[in-house]
């Protein structure tokens, strides 16, 4: 069993958990993820490792389905049946010069570790974090501390630049040399944003989040087409060259279980109503 040491609600439907998992914490590197299973009946879901402290790891998630909704009902002191990780290849950290790291929505969760390692490797690190609105923006202070420069965007203009991360990136690319770019966020955001670096030929990484089961290369559920070849995101990724990724196929494969996911979520909501369970209070 893996204990939740700290549970905080960061924004509407967005939660930050610190989980005690020494074997993950000891080995975790930027760009890697873990898979957790809540209980005997649970499914295995991948979540990015967002930070490490002692023998605990941080995950940040948005409630989008049954498992994340259920996870959100847990609080500090509660346990999770299974946590395995770190999984996937670490980010390709190196001293490239100027690196830009972009997080969209809950994808911002992945940015601090990558930014930190890039900074340690000697890069000038520019962060761009974007959300739909100011109240959904997470990890601003943390990123401001790590990055040499930090830009904020909101879709509704309630904070920072009114617009998308891609707008800021385009401006930066036009003004100066950027050597590497990382983009982590919803598939459509990664697809659109990575398009900005194509004319400049800047190597751009995206972190893919297809449906996974084992996370160790055994099942092929997470297969994606990269440069015309089939790759397994769990072991060949999760980070890939953005300009080679077939995003449309990936988004299509993310929808395989839409019907079942809806059924499962509705059933869970119904169950919670019946039990009158309000879940834990998050500070």
């Amino acid at each position: 069993m893996y204990t939740i040491e700290l549970a905080t609600k960061l924004a509407d439907r967005v939660y930050e958990y610190w989980i005690r998992a020494p074997q993950v914490a000891e080995h975790a590197r930027a760009g890697q993820f873990l898979i957790l299973r809540l209980h005997e009946e649970g499914e295995r879901i991948p979540l990015t490792i967002s930070a490490v402290r002692g023998d605990t790891v941080r995950v940040i998630f948005m409630t989008v389905g049954k498992t994340t909704e259920e996870l959100a009902t847990l609080g500090a002191g509660d346990s999770i049946s299974d946590v395995v990780g770190p999984l996937g290849k670490p980010s390709e950290i190196g001293n490239y010069g100027t690196c830009c790291i972009i997080g969209g929505g809950v994808g911002i969760a992945s940015t601090p570790l990558i930014a930190k390692e890039l900074k340690s490797a000697g890069n000038h690190v520019i962060g761009i974090i974007g959300a739909r609105s100011a109240d959904l923006l997470i990890l601003e202070d943390e990123m401001r501390e790590i990055c040499d420069e930090l830009y904020i965007t909101t879709d509704d203009g309630s904070k920072g630049v009114h617009g998308f991360a891609a707008d800021v990136l385009k401006k930066l690319l036009a003004e100066r040399t950027i050597d590497r770019v990382w983009i982590i966020g919803p598939a459509i955001m990664m697809k659109v944003t990575s398009g900005a670096t194509v004319p400049y030929g800047v190597k751009t990484y995206v972190s893919l989040n297809p449906i996974m089961v084992d996370g160790t290369g055994m099942c092929g559920s997470c297969r994606v087409t990269v440069g015309g070849e089939t790759k397994f995101a769990c072991v060949d990724g999760p980070e890939f060259d953005a300009h080679q990724v077939d995003f449309n196929e990936m988004m299509q494969r993310q929808r395989i279980y839409t019907t079942q996911e809806k059924e499962s979520l509705e059933r869970f909501a119904e169950h919670r109503c019946r039990c009158g369970e309000g879940g834990h209070h998050h500070e």
């Binding site: 009946e41 499914e43 295995r44 099942c219 092929g220 279980y257 079942q260 499962s264």
Partner: peptide, 23 residues
């Protein structure tokens, strides 16, 4: 892949969805 299909059912009990969460 047969591995995925069988893992979903044998390991994750997807045959018992939605009692089990894996579809």
């Amino acid at each position: 892949s047969a591995n995925e299909f069988l893992t979903r059912v044998n390991l994750m009990h997807a045959d018992a969805f939605p009692e089990f969460d894996t579809p």
